[in-house]
Structure formats: C-alpha cells, structure tokens
Amino acid sequence: MDLFVQQLVGGLATGGIYASLALALVMIHRATELINFAQGEMAMFSTYIAWTLISAGMPYWAAFFITVTVSFAGGVVIERVVIRPVEKASILTIIVVFIGLLLIFNSLAGWIWTYTIKPFESPFPDRPFHLFADISVRMHDAGAILVTLAVLTLVYLFFRFTPLGLAMRGAALNPESSRLVGIRVGWMLALGWGLAAAIGAVAGMMVAPITFLDPNMMAFVLLYAFAGALLGGINSPGGAVVGGFMVGVLENLAGTYVPFIGNELKLTLALLLIIAVVIFRPSGLFGKPVVVRV
C-alpha cells in the first residue's frame, strides 16, 4: 500500500510535468496545426538558464521567475524571427525548421554547459511529506504537483477570463474573422509561442531535480508529453493535461508492477502508447475528430 501510494504520487508528479509540456504542445498545435518538436529542447535550455542563475547565487524563486520571463521573451522572438518566414510553407518545411531548432538548442547547451550531468536544486525541502496515517511521499513530488496545478490554473484563467486570452483563442480558431475584428493574429501566434516556452520552462525546472540536468534530459519527457497530448486529444488543452497525468501514473505503475517493463522499456511504453492511440483513437479521449471540408 505504501509503495503503491508513493508510486501513484510520484506518477502524478512526473505526470504533471508531462501535462505542462503537453499543454505547451497543444497550444502551438491549436494555433498552427503543428507539433513543435523543439519544445523539449527549449525547456531544457531554459532550465540551464535557471541553473546558471542559481549557481551565481540567486535565490531559487527569483531565478525561477526570471527564467520564466526570459523563456517567454525567447519564445516570442523565435516565432517572430525563425518561424514567421516559413509560416505559409508546407508542413515538411516547418518540421525541418523545428528539427533545426532542436539540434541548435541541444548542441548549444552542450557547447555552453558541457555534457556533464549536473544536479539541479529542488525548491522544496528534502524530507518526506506526510500524506495521511503513516504514508508519506517525497516533498519534491508533492511540490511539483502543486506548481503544475498552479500553472495550469493560471493558464485556464488567462484564456477564460482575460480579453487577451479571448483574442488568442479567436486567432487560433478563426484567423480570418479575428483579423476582421482587429486582432493582430501574427502577434497572437507569437504570444502563444511565448506562453508555450514559459510553461515548458516550468516543466523543465520541475523535472530536472528528478532526472538531473543534461542536454538530452528532455527526450523522454517530450516523448511522454507527446503520448499524453495524443491520449488526451491533440486539439484539447484540458484533455492534454488529463492525458499527461494519466501517462505519468501509467509509466510509474507499469515500471513498478509489470516485471518485464521496469525502467528499461520506459521509452518503448511511450512508443506503444502513441501507436495505440494513433491506431484506435487518433482524436484522443477528449479531442474532436478532425473533419476536412473538400
């Protein structure tokens, strides 16, 4: 029982991280119908920025908010400078550009900070957190769940209750009409990229204390975020969040209780999940099937 609850909470903690990254993916997908393959590497790069600030002696939460701000600005700049010129090109062209960004961020991080694995500080104390009775979980797991829930709530409130959020939703759903009512669709896209990068930065900083910091740390996180986003529905933000939590829990429980999976086949599990969703329910659990008008 103790083990089960621990694995469950651990799964929810990593699941929250997958959920954040999945949400970042879905945000860009809704606006542009594209899956940003560089999302994970952008998050990794942000986490290195946070590490640099903390190593320079800055308090954790100051570094946290500076990193989120810098990542937001970085996301906007990338959209404006790199993505915008190929906006109207074919899907293949844009995916080539995404892969280019992935390579650049990955190698740049290796170049600046070397490939040596670094520990990353958790803002939460390193002691168990008593859940109930005699069952306790790691403080970082509980904290990570809280932080991701806070981020998700903020994003929800932003899109639901602010004029800017409404404008961004409008620009994503119906660019032509939005332009007619005076929304600057191009800038809404750039803001979407900024938000996605900022959410990714939070995910990176929450996952780094668990996985340690290295330029390749995001490959499996991104894979699980893909699986979560697909499972929940690639065009449904709420679905992606639920999907992210689900794959996190599934990953942990399968790793603990299914002997042949263990830690060795975690990536294969994500692959199988992705293939299963693509075969049986391509629109995901909560997404709407895509209907194309001919």
């Binding site: 490959a219 894979l223 990536l267 992705i274 693509v278």
Partner: peptide
C-alpha cells in the same frame, strides 16, 4: 496505421520509434 492520418502524426510516431529503438536493443 500512421499513414491513415495527417503528416505530423507519422512524424510523431516515427520520432517515438527512433527514440525508443536504442533502448529496445539494450533490453536484457
């Protein structure tokens, strides 16, 4: 299965395949 869907689903599925294969090759 992937071919029935739009271009980026195949990109996603093949991306996952590429990331997972080295792990399968190491499998005990």
């Amino acid at each position: 299965p992937a071919g029935r869907l739009a271009g980026h689903y195949l990109a996603l599925a093949t991306f996952a395949l590429a990331v997972a294969v080295p792990q399968i090759l190491k499998y005990d």
